[in-house]
Structures are given as structure tokens and as C-alpha cells.
């Protein structure tokens, strides 16, 4: 990940950044400007607007809130909730909790990574799926569990998990086909 002090380079690297409307977050910034200790809340609300925290947005927050870029970037990268890259349409959170671990979550991760042809933390080329993990989803009695866009699925095995992904994929392509 590039540091924000080199963000000229970042902007050229990631073309999508030019499309970002920085005015969308004005309301959030104005509401919290001058409020001591509000950085995390601002980052949470801004991430809700853009879906992630693009580098120009972080830079803008630091300018408008009067905070050092290093503090904003440092905080944004410290917490797992914050994403510096966009996520796919379907965010798969594979639970890494102890109960899921002892019930075979690792095997599910292997199977999903193989099915989607991505590593954990990555997004598929078609922008449909992001495979990520959560420390614990708290549905331990359904272990092993994954959550896709807020809906929990469990108890899983490799085969069930793969089937769920294939179903979503098929439904998406059916939808796209119908439109044409």
C-alpha cells in the first residue's frame, strides 16, 4: 500500500480515483469538525458513503479536519473495519472464530479460494465477490459459518459453501442475461 504522502502516484495507479466526488462527505466533515476524538466516527461514516476509503478521501479528511495525514492514514490502517480498496458486490466474510476453526473453517477457505480463484482478502476480476474473514461472527452454534452481505450461512462444509457461491453466481448471470 502506498503511503498518502505519495498519493500523486496512487491516483495515477488507480484510475477510479478521478471519479470520486469529494463533496459527498461535506456534511459529515462539517458535523464533526472541531469535535475532539471524532476521527474514527468520521472514517466510519465516510466509508458508509463511498463503500471504502479511497486515498484522496483520506487526504481530504486530514486537510478539512486539521489532522496530520499520517494520523488519518495510521488510524484507517489500524482498524480492520476500514478498507482502502473497493469490495465486490458480494462480500464473503468467513468466520475465523475458535468454534468455526475446530469445525473445519480452514477447509472451507481452501475450497472457496479455489472456487473463486482468489486469495483471502482479494476480489474477483468481475467485481462480484470479495473473500474476506471476520475474527468471530458470534454464531458459534452454527459453526462453521460464513456471512454474505449480512446474511449468515451455516453449518457449512466445503461442498455446501461452494454450492452457495455457485448459486449466487448463476443468479447474477441469469439476471444479466435477462436484461440483454
Amino acid at each position: 500500500m502506498n503511503c498518502c504522502c505519495q498519493n500523486k502516484k496512487t491516483e495515477t495507479n488507480q484510475g477510479t480515483h478521478t471519479d470520486i466526488d469529494l463533496r459527498l462527505m461535506d456534511e459529515v466533515i462539517n458535523h464533526h469538525r472541531g469535535e475532539k476524538g471524532s476521527l474514527i466516527t468520521v472514517l466510519q461514516k465516510v466509508q458508509d458513503i463511498y463503500g471504502y476509503l479511497p486515498m484522496p478521501v483520506l487526504k481530504e479528511i486530514s486537510l478539512k479536519m486539521g489532522l496530520k495525514p499520517a494520523q488519518v492514514y495510521g488510524t484507517a490502517t489500524f482498524y480492520t473495519q476500514f478498507r482502502l480498496k473497493p469490495v465486490g458486490k458480494y462480500l464473503i466474510l468467513l468466520c475465523q472464530g475458535t468454534a468455526c476453526h475446530v469445525n473445519g473453517s480452514e477447509r472451507i477457505e481452501t475450497a472457496l479460494a479455489e472456487e473463486l480463484k482468489i486469495k483471502p482478502g482479494e476480489t474477483t476480476d468481475d467485481g462480484l465477490f470479495t473473500l474476506d474473514s471476520a475474527a468471530c461472527l458470534g454464531c458459534c452454534s452454527l459453526a462453521p459459518v460464513m456471512m454474505i452481505n449480512g446474511q449468515a450461512y451455516g453449518p457449512l462444509n466445503s461442498e455446501k459453501a461452494t454450492r452457495i457461491i455457485r448459486d449466487i453466481y448463476a443468479a447474477e448471470h441469469l439476471k444479466a442475461g435477462e436484461k440483454i
Partner: peptide, 25 residues
């Protein structure tokens, strides 16, 4: 209510305070 942002160490009370103050926990 203050929402945490996903850092296990923030369960430790001094780290929790740092996080409440908007810093890294």
C-alpha cells in the same frame, strides 16, 4: 454509544481509551 472499528487490542482498557479518543488503539 461509541462504535469500535475492529481491533482486538481495544478490549484492553487503556487501548480502549485511546480508541475512544479517535486514535489508534
Amino acid at each position: 454509544i461509541k462504535q469500535g472499528a475492529g481491533a482486538f487490542v481495544c478490549g484492553e482498557e487503556t487501548a480502549l481509551i485511546a480508541s475512544l479518543e479517535g486514535e489508534r488503539g
